[in-house]
Design a protein around this nucleic acid. Structure first.
Lengths: 207, 207
DNA sequence: ACGTGAAACCAACAGTTGTTATATTAAACG
DNA sequence: CGTTTAATATAACAACTGTTGGTTTCACGT
């Protein structure tokens, strides 16, 4: 071992250092040396835990996706009906600094994913999961009669994914155009007129 | 001059060569040398027309945005009412190979834009224009009574931008999930239930 | 107390990058 | 024809990249 002061570093810590470098300097500046420097270490730390740089990036993206799914599950627990859908959106929309960082990381990888199959599959995985959650909730709502039977859960789920992803992308490029209240206004407006469900509580803030 | 066979190259041609390289090999592989090779020329061609690589990329993105706006104007001309909004969407959605290429290029730049102010401003410009067009049309529709007065044109415009961008992003990552018919189904479904306007012609294909 | 092996360091390599400076070409013009 | 000059080619530079291999450190089980 080494590292006089401080314990040994894990793969997760390396990945998180990569996140920080990407957020600060951009993905194209996230070299192995830069990531090592972020850890106050040398390149050996990185090359020990990861065979490739590709493997590191994939792992970093995978862990990011995992965190998103975990947040989604946690947010959803303990609520019912249409509120469960709003809870999902609560974690996917760029409402707070944490979600914004997630979005910024995510979008940083999208460009690379255009020419990297494995990264693209990782992106797909996240969208598939998100879509599935929406679809499950919509089906339940149709069954319980809370929303019209005319609603096609599969298509409506893809629409919700698109709407929330569009807001996320839009926020990164034009933050002023999508403050938290407006994000909710758009989403609630959609749910209300499309699914025929109006908000229970007053105000547009978080539930 | 030089170039035994073939006339002299313009800035636009260099930019378009850059597009091709980006589409084929990804933005991170679009080096000055690779772009020159795409033109069957040497780096001198590129460095002669552009002082910087940053300037080249900015120009390439600017020209891409210009093409999008031109397409939008052309598609909109000669139609009225709600159809004008659908015509805008016709050019922003990834419906055909041409639009998909545009989207792929656009998304390739987004990552870089996260850490490059000028590129980000160029992205903003496109979204601002798109938003403005939607808002103009929505205002006109409210005035003419074609859609409810309760509609807030500003907010609804941002919602439309988000929805179409979300579909664009979603298509690149999960093409199967967003075939052309489904894109229209989502968009028309939104317009119908949110703006209270149903399609005139039958079928979900292009107008 | 001592070896064993995990964890990290360090140096070097070959390749690529953007940039700059200089040389070469050929078309246009007088 | 000769000159000029826009357009391209060429060559070289220093900086940076991912990757490899050898070396050092130190915690732990015996």
């Amino acid at each position: 071992m080494a590292r006089v002061a401080g314990r040994t570093l894990t793969r997760e810590e390396v990945a998180e250092a990569a996140w920080r470098v990407i957020l600060r300097d951009g993905l194209h500046n996230a070299s192995i040396r830069a990531i090592a420097k972020e850890l106050d270490a040398t390149t050996g730390v990185v090359t020990y835990h990861f065979h490739d740089k590709a493997e590191l990036l994939l792992f970093a993206l995978d862990r990011l996706g995992g965190a998103i799914v975990r947040n989604m599950d946690a947010a959803q627990a303990g609520s019912t009906g249409i509120e469960r859908i709003r809870r999902i959106l609560r974690t996917t929309l760029p409402l707070g600094p944490q979600e914004v960082s997630g979005w910024r990381l995510w979008i940083s990888f999208v460009g690379l994913a255009m020419s990297n199959k494995k990264l693209r599959e990782e992106h797909q995985r996240r969208l598939d999961i998100l879509n599935e959650r929406f679809e499950i909730e919509l089906r339940a709502l149709v069954r319980s009669g809370e929303i019209p039977v005319a609603i096609d859960p599969a298509q409506e789920a893809d629409a919700l994914v698109a709407l929330s992803d569009g807001i996320g992308l839009g926020y990164l490029l034009r933050p002023k155009a999508y403050p938290a209240e407006k994000q909710w206004a758009i989403v609630d407006g959609y749910i209300e007129s499309r699914l025929g469900v109006s908000r229970v509580a007053r105000g547009a803030a978080r539930p």
